[in-house]
Design a protein around this nucleic acid. Structure first.
Lengths: 235, 235
DNA sequence: ATTTTAAGTGTTTATTTCACAATTAATAAA
DNA sequence: TTTATTAATTGTGAAATAAACACTTAAAAT
């Protein structure tokens, strides 16, 4: 088999920006890097693409290897290709963002792996250009969540409207009138009201809801307006 | 200097989906591939990333080399990484889309280079996964143009509102009421009315407008609503 | 002077968004 | 048992925005 001779070949990495929500705070999953360079520094989940796997496969494998997470929402974001972004050797990084319900994986992550959930407001210095990736990922999920119902991926399968509102308020760093918020989310038709309540947060208790998966998948592409004044969003 | 030994290295290509508008029809710039494999087949503009250039630099260089185009709107879209997408050797393709005023470059392209503008509705079979890239690019510009004023990049610096409307109608494959359209675009505050008219399209002539570049750059990220019923858009 | 053609413009109605506060369910305390 | 506390739940009116809809006008051609 012939080859494209004379062309340079490069390392290709995948880096994952993993968002999680615990009911109160938006967090990122970070690890202490286990190899040189920058060993023991904070880093995103990353690894090299192998010759027998596609980018999506690589992203899923890396996420699973480093955190045990499997089957989570994962979306390609952007490829970072500055020549000197890795000081050892030029490496292209294809970045992905992931959305995870923290509680579903919390124990698994902290016991089996050296990964940690860090509040988005207190991200430490990261290696290479990972800081830049995080900034872009924050913008990306805001942008996408303003139009599409991706934030449900951060919640457990049963959740309350107040929980959902806290999540939206965290992501958009704003506060929303709860009457208008509940009207908007219910108007999407995506929610199914359940019979029982979550009594953890209040005496009265808040009804649980779950996603109408039919409509969720069917309407995923359609624009959905949950955020007031989306005009002020930054891309 | 140490290296990451044991890791596989890959070819990295950049492929550009170049959109153009001639006042009537949306077109793509295609070339007949000049080397094997698939020599003489239709292809997007592409080339390998060199060791001393970033992805953006590679995209700009390739666009310039193959078409003479320089300083055009160019945006990274998506990275395609299926293992077998290039039959000769595994190659990652980082795709970009570009928006070009056809008239500004038409002669240059057809005389100096073997590139051709092909109406979007009559794209021939393309090599590799370029068809898939084109489909994604069509969705991408629709999506982005529904929210941001990128389509002005396809027009000359002086244009009329009827021209602009035809462009929007082409991109969204729809027809728009001209009273509502002109109200919407003028409401953005992005347009400056000029004193003279374009007499080519009608006896009466249509006033030329140009972009208010201040506002254009300032408001580029803000959501701008020009399309009726954007809910029906597909991501 | 008349015809032709596309450009330009305004109003009414319907829909959506926004601002705003009282009531209720359930537990805890008296 | 009653009362207090706390968060959940719910509705309405005003304002802004979007949608539907048709005639007049400028300029060239006849």
């Amino acid at each position: 088999m012939q080859k494209y001779s004379k062309q340079t070949r490069f390392l290709i990495a995948v880096d994952c920006i993993v968002f999680g929500f615990d009911g109160e705070t938006l967090k990122l999953l970070l690890i202490k890097r286990s190899f040189n360079p920058e060993k023991d520094k904070w880093s995103l989940m990353g690894g090299f693409v192998q010759s027998d796997e596609s980018l999506d496969q690589a992203a899923n494998r890396i996420l699973k290897q480093l955190t045990g997470l499997e089957g989570v929402y994962l979306e390609q974001m952007y490829s970072f290709g500055e020549t000197n972004r890795d000081p050892i050797e030029r490496t292209l990084s294809v970045s992905y963002f992931a959305l995870v319900d923290i509680h579903k994986y919390e124990k698994q992550i902290s016991t089996d792996f050296h990964a940690e959930w860090v509040p988005l407001k207190r991200i430490p210095k990261l290696i290479f250009d990972h800081q830049e990736m995080v900034e872009m990922a924050k913008k990306s999920i805001r942008y996408k969540a303003a139009l599409h119902p991706i934030l449900f991926e951060l919640l457990p399968s049963r959740f309350t409207i107040p929980q959902l509102q806290i999540l939206y308020e965290s992501v958009f760093n704003t506060s929303i009138d709860k009457r208008n918020f509940s009207k908007r989310v219910l108007a999407t038709g995506l929610l199914i009201k359940l019979a029982d309540k979550d009594k953890a947060g209040s005496k009265r208790g808040a009804y649980y809801y779950q996603l109408n998966m039919q409509k969720y998948y069917a309407n995923f592409q359609a624009f959905i307006n949950i955020i007031p004044n989306p005009d002020s969003l930054q891309a």
